[in-house]
Every structure is written in structure tokens, then in C-alpha cells.
Design a protein around this nucleic acid. Sequence first.
DNA 1: CCTTTTCCGGTTAACGTTAACAGACTCTGT
DNA 2: ACAGAGTCTGTTAACGTTAACCGGAAAAGG
Lengths: 353, 353
Amino acid sequence: MRRSTPKKKHATLADIAASAGVTPMTVSRVVNGNGYVSAETREKVLSAVSALNYRRNGLARGLKRQRTDTIGLVLGDIANPFAAELARAVREVMSARGYNVFICVSEHSAREDIAAFESLADHRVDGCIVATRANKLGNDRLAEMIEGGIPVVLIGRDFRHPNADLIAADNLRGGYDATAHLISLGHKNIGFIGVTPTSGVGLRRYHGYLEAMREHGLKVDERLIVGRADDGDQWPGYSTESMGYEGMKKLLALRKRPTAVFARNDFTAVGAMSAVKEAGLKIPGDIAIVGYDDVPLAAHTTPPLTTVRQPTREQGRIAAEALLRRIESAETPAREERVMACELVVRASTVAE
Amino acid sequence: MRRSTPKKKHATLADIAASAGVTPMTVSRVVNGNGYVSAETREKVLSAVSALNYRRNGLARGLKRQRTDTIGLVLGDIANPFAAELARAVREVMSARGYNVFICVSEHSAREDIAAFESLADHRVDGCIVATRANKLGNDRLAEMIEGGIPVVLIGRDFRHPNADLIAADNLRGGYDATAHLISLGHKNIGFIGVTPTSGVGLRRYHGYLEAMREHGLKVDERLIVGRADDGDQWPGYSTESMGYEGMKKLLALRKRPTAVFARNDFTAVGAMSAVKEAGLKIPGDIAIVGYDDVPLAAHTTPPLTTVRQPTREQGRIAAEALLRRIESAETPAREERVMACELVVRASTVAE
DNA sequence: CCTTTTCCGGTTAACGTTAACAGACTCTGT
DNA sequence: ACAGAGTCTGTTAACGTTAACCGGAAAAGG
């Protein structure tokens, strides 16, 4: 218990300067590698730096320089492979240009969404990429921050602002294509797992499903739309697989069960597949299944999952580049909106081999 | 093209003060809700705050207060559900105590590992939770930072330092139990997917496997250890499912193929299962499979996956609390090390129902 | 009535860094 | 020898915030 020691303080430029017998300014020049410093002084300074374990204070530096070389990335759900891939792409571009990336997670809650970009803004990140789903409160707050002068780029968030670029996958079309694929295979009774009829408002892929059904003259039975509401503020212990599993159970219990199902994402689809197999039914013979995202897992399910691939890396890369443009140009550039095509990947969960 | 506007600047306390006809100090009192301010002036100030869209400058604030109310979390792989769950638990504890959490991702690269906690340290986070795998360079750098005075707690990183707590799951025991389970079912020829014989040095669950084999008098054939090296600095396009798939392919091609396989994690196990089924073999009849982590998916594979559950939330929570202790106590507390038990979850991939 | 407390707001001086400028000294070329 | 350029280091003044302190007015207590 007595094994505690007094706390250490961080060394400052002044400490190094005193120890090396120079002024703080000279030390600053050495650690930043700019300005003229003789080899001899540099040596003295560097050895003092490592002796005192000096690290520059990013707060003071950022305050003085009016930039932090740091950007923020707000993600809704860190467990999602899509988010992970996005983060990787953003980071690649950003670190090549000398920026750090700090990630904040909102857990799909409006309150946390706001808290996340407020804390990033307070720490004066040079810009922000926001990849969370739209919500009223968050949108309002975001608009204020943008108007407050923070460069912002949105990924897949259904919110438009004249000073924020928007990069998105064409999930409306993706959902349409997935559904049209099932229709072209002769299915008429097609379910959707992953939203409630009311909560799906913000989900483009769900609208794609509705549109495809309507355009092909198929009626959408509300009993075929199953899932949990997700627009509330809490989503405790959310597991997308179990939503798929439970959703499919509900569909299988219907008097007239669907012959095909479109799931909001691949993990939901996997849960649904598990329920189908448990019921002793065949995929795709009895029920065909389509997922969304083409996560690595999708190629390894039994049977392999038909899904819709979105260009994740490209979205991340383009968003990062758009943000850099906003950060580094003297004037705030004109708004850019990019909608990227998705690609249906047909595997054995809809078409037997 | 011409649709660009000049950049905005952030409003400062002084701007608000001027606009409200008070001093900056009074504004500070209002926005921080401390000190005495009359209702009338508070009103004036607040309306100026919202009119000018003021947000306090966290850099200046942090610089002056010598704390940022922010902690850093360094993760190796954001796509891992384990990491996601950990992050959630850490965030829960931390936001309840008024701290923000910034996440940095190292992509399992030593260079990025170092860059991550250096950038966090430079931004003067109040403390850091590091959940990346150990590596020589990173450990050295980390030791320097700890000695530089930053409170650090490690999760599952095989690195000891007198001023850093260590929370870990007992993956050695978990790996042992998983392997012993297979042995108790009569398997003798048991493969491991996910490391090369040389690269697995840092992976406790792999050592558990080796230990169980040795203790039960079974010899470990090096050809039964398959996987990619992962201790290099690059790991491009890494997909854990495909490692499992390819690893299993190699094992199936052996003249004397294993009757059971232990995979380093559940996704690797899923990839392996996919290769087994593709070869027309039965699970667990021809080959039994055990994974690790008990991700939500594991309950929904076909057959459901036997795996080892680690207490993820608890690790996150305990780490967060340990960090808070380090941050908020005046003296640096004595080192704490917690090893948490894992639990074998038996499902149908090893024992037919 | 006087003393003490509570309320309200201003003043000053940092926190650690760097941009801008200034001064001195050393070359180089003519 | 001298202008001009290049090299090296120091001084000053912010960047935006808040801790610490100060003083006056009003309220409370005796």
C-alpha cells in the first residue's frame, strides 16, 4: 500500500532550455526541425530532450499555431466491419499528409453523437468526418458547428449543409438491386429484416426495397417487415445477429411465410440464415437470403451469402481528400456531393450452384 | 466554382465578453457554471454565446487547467468485436465520470502503435488505456511515456511496468481449456490455425494449446500449426476469415489430417469451417472446431461454434476504473495486475447434438 | 448599529508554445 | 574591402483560458 510515489510533471521547453543552456526558442527549433541551429547546439538540446524525456505540449502548440494536425472521425458503431474499413482508409490518407486521426463512437445514440463531435470540436481538431446516421438533434448541432467554422465531411449521413461535403454509397439503388434480383428469380413474397415499418425512415436500402417492390407491382405486407426500432436514444446490448435470428423466427411463424428475405446487413442475414437452418428449411430452396455490405464473412457462410458491396475504401479515401481540401484551402470550397455505386454480389444464398 | 466564401474564425471569450459588455472572466464563469454571476448578466452572456456560436477552446482550457478531461484508448484492430465491446465498456465508465474517450487504431503495426500513443500523449490526454499487442519498439516507447508521467493501464498486452496496471484475460488457460476439451473428446491430432510456429510467441492462447498438448503427452507436429506471420510491420488487407479458410485448406491437404482444430479467434474458425464444408466433410464428425472470443456470430454459425468467452466488459470496466484511480489520486498508486478467468462455451462444432 | 457572510464582478498573471523580428557573425564574389 | 547572402541565436508578444486574488454591495446575524 505504501508503494506509491509522487507524481511526475512533464518537462517543458523551458526546462530543456535551462538544462542545455540555450533559450526555449532554440529548443523549439530543434524539436521542430526548422530554422537554423548549429550541429553542436542541436546535440546539446537533443541530449537534454532525451534525458528529461521531453514531449512537446500539443495543447500549447495547437493554441499558438491555430491548428492541431489532427482530425476527428465520428463512427456510429465500431464493431461494424464497414466502419473499420472506413477508418482504415481515412487514416491512410490522413497520416500520409501528417494528420492524426482521433475516433469517437456514438453507439447510435443522438446524445453521444452530439457529445462526440462537440468534444472533437472543443479540442480544435482541424476537421471532422462524420459517419453516423442522421438524427434531428445531431443534425442541428452539426449545422451549428459547421457554421462555427469547423470543416466537416459527411459519410452516408442523410443531412445536407452548404458547407459540408457528402460522400455516400447509393444504398437506395443497392437495396433496389438486391430486391430486384430476388424478384427476377421469381420471388413475390419478400421480407425485410432489420427495421420496423416506422423506424426505417432513414434507411436508404430499405427504401430501395420498397421501391423495387412497388415498381414491380408487388404489394408490401407490413407483417413482412420485422426488426427492432433503432431510432431511440438507447440500444442496449444490440446484437445484429440476434435481430436477424429473431426476425426470421417471426417471419417463419407467419401463415404465409416469405420465400425470400432481404436483411439490412450481412450480420443480420447470418442470424436469419441460422433461424432458417434451425427450422430445417433449405437456403435458397425454401428461403433465399440477401445481405448488405459484403463483409469478409459473407463469402464464408453456408451457403455463401448474396450481398451488396459498397465501395468502402473509396468512400473513406474520398471523404479524407475532401476534408483535406476544406482544411488546407484558404477559402471554404464549394460543396461536393458524391454518390458511389454499389455492386450486387450474387452467391449461393439466392441462386443454388 | 466561385461559390466559395471566406473562412470563419472561432469566437473567443473576449468576443463574447465584448458583445455582452462584461469581462472574459465573467463569461468563463457562465460557461463553466462556477462562481457567482447574477441571473441578469448570465442571460446577457448566454445570448451572446449562442449568437456568436461560441465553443470554448479546449486547447487553451487544457493548457491552463493542466488537464483535458480526455483519455486515450489505443486499439489494435477496430474491426474486432472484442475491441468494440472493450471500447464501449471503457466509454461507459469514462463518460459517467466526465471524461471523453479518443480512440486511436494501430492496425497491429509497431510504428502505428507508437504513433498512436505519442499523438495521444502530445495532446495531453489525462491517461491512456493501451490494448494493443506487445512489440519491442512499442514497449520501449511506452515505458518512456509512462516514466514521463502519463497514467497508463494495459489491457491484454504482455508488458509489465511498475507504473502501469495490467488487466488481462487468462488466455493461456483459455487456450489450454479449449485444447483439453478437444483432447477429452478423444482427439489426438489437433491443429492450430492462426500463427506460424515462430510468430505465435506473443499469443497466450497458442501457448495454452502447446501446454495442453504437452501435458497430455501428445506431440505437436509443426505441420499442424498454420497461419500467417503477423509480427511484421505490415499486414495489408488482412482478413481473418480468409486466414482460417486458407489455413484449413493446408491442413486438409496433409496426408494425415487433424481430427480437430483450434482457431485463434472465432472469425478464423468460421473461415476454417467454410473450408471443411467445401471439402464435403462433417463438423464435428470429421473435424471438430473451437474458436475464441465468443463473438455474437459464434452462436449463429452452422453448426454453432464451441469457443472461449472472455469477460470483455469487465476488462474494460476494470481498466477504466484503474485508470481513473491513477488519474485522480494525488500519488501514483501501487501497480495492480488482474488476470480474469475465461469460460469454455461448448456448442455443436465439437459435440454433436 | 456593527460585524460577518454571501454575492457579484473585475484584475492580474500564468499555462507552454511559436511567429516575427532583430542582431551578430561568417562566408562569397568581385 | 565591401555588399549581399546565409547562418545562428535571442527577445518579445501573443494564442484563449482560468486560478487566485481583490474589493464593493447587499443580506444576515447579533
